[in-house]
Amino acid sequence: MEKITFINSKGQSVELGNDGPYILTKIEGTGAVNVDIQTQKSPYQDGESYLGNTLDPRLISIEVMVLAENIEEMMIHRRKMLNIFNPKLGEGILIYEIGSIRREIKAISELAPVFPDAEGFKDTMQPGLIQLYCPNPFWKDINTAKEEVAIWRGSFEFPLELVEEGIELGYREPSLIVNVLNKGDVATGMRIQFKALATVVNPSLFNVNTREYFKVNRTMEAGEVITVATHFQNKRVELNKNGVISNVFNWIDFQSTFLQLDPGDNLFRYDADEGIDNLEVSIYFNPQHLGV
């Protein structure tokens, strides 16, 4: 079953699918987008030298059939679509579902929904056209993936049987290195979370493949959490201390890199100048795809 849901910046939503009053009849633009290839040419050079490429924004066209019992109900349905797909509200979230695949993309209406005349049907059936513009062309997985790089595992469970030598309540993961698998088509940013169980000095995360690292020059106390967002145009470093969030961008080590996840395998190693056994590190990310 194919279904789309649009949620605008005010949290209002509409669902287009197989059931009324909004029947999804056609959607275009969910696949690949145009590529802008960058090249340069030197004097007397045959052909050109390839430099790289970028992807154009994504354009999505949606056709819908609006169903109603009478003209009054039709006007209510049309008004709802006009309110939700209001271009003045800025970017919203378009969720696309087909089979077991569920992905989302940020989109803005290029114009208010258009309702062409349909001779003999406008009272109970009304076709509609929606044009969406997606500045970032990549579809993202709706569910956020999580990898725990360093964590204490609980081993206390019921039923409890006491033994003479005692029981183990928890244990530390033995490996300092973890593989983070990015199943997307392109590199993506992530959210790195450093959590201190006791005193930790200068926590860091190192990319074994690229030899790049991200380090926070800070002595963390028990219960403090530092969250690093490495997404393009949304880079942040924040401290959560007793529920109070503060910007700590100035704590970044000057040689740090806002690490990215390449498609496929990514090996990371966590570290700290002191108190490494008191550090928990988690990575959160949403793989990005070229199309659906």
Rank of each mutant, 00 (worst) to 15 (best):
M81K: 03
E73V: 10
N83H: 07
A112Q: 11
E63S: 08
E119A: 15
P135V: 04
A118W: 09
R102P: 11
S42N: 13
A32I: 14
E48G: 04
P57T: 09
L51A: 13
A107D: 00
I108W: 04
E110A: 12
G99V: 12
E104D: 08
N34P: 11
I71P: 09
E15K: 00
I60N: 04
L129T: 08
G31I: 06
P127L: 10
G52A: 03
L24P: 01
Y44N: 15
I4Q: 02
T124A: 11
E2C: 10
E104R: 08
L129S: 08
I37H: 00
K122A: 12
N53A: 13
I130M: 02
G31L: 04
E110Y: 15
K122L: 14
D123N: 11
I60G: 07
E110N: 12
A107N: 08
T30L: 09
I60E: 01
N8C: 01
G52K: 02
G99Q: 08
G99S: 10
S100H: 10
V14C: 09
E2K: 14
M81Y: 02
Q131P: 12
I23S: 03
K80R: 13
F115A: 04
I62Q: 06
K41C: 06
F6M: 01
T5Y: 00
N83F: 03
M125V: 05
G17C: 05
N70Q: 08
L67Q: 11
Q38Y: 00
P127R: 04
I62Y: 04
V64I: 13
G120V: 11
S109R: 08
L51I: 11
E110W: 15
H77S: 05
P135A: 08
E48I: 10
E2S: 15
L82R: 02
I71Q: 12
L129N: 15
E2Q: 14
N53T: 09
N70P: 01
E119D: 15
I84K: 00
T39P: 03
T39F: 02
A112Y: 08
D123R: 03
I108S: 04
I27M: 05
S100F: 13
T54R: 07
F138G: 01
F6L: 01
N83Q: 13
E15A: 06
E2R: 15
T5A: 02
L24S: 07
G92W: 00
E69S: 14
T39G: 01
S42D: 11
G29S: 06
T25K: 05
S42A: 12
H77F: 10
M74W: 08
M65K: 07
E97Y: 04
D117T: 14
L55Y: 08
P116D: 12
P43M: 14
S49A: 09
K122H: 15
T39K: 01
G52Q: 00
L94K: 00
Y96R: 05
K122W: 15
T30K: 06
P43Q: 14
Q38A: 03
G52S: 07
E97D: 10
P87G: 04
V33F: 00
R79F: 14
I105D: 01
R78D: 09
I93P: 06
I95D: 03
N34H: 13
E48P: 03
I105S: 00
M75R: 13
I62D: 01
S61A: 15
Q38H: 07
G11R: 02
I105M: 06
I98G: 11
M81E: 05
F138R: 01
V14Q: 00
M1C: 09
Q45P: 08
E110M: 15
M1F: 13
G20E: 09
G17P: 07
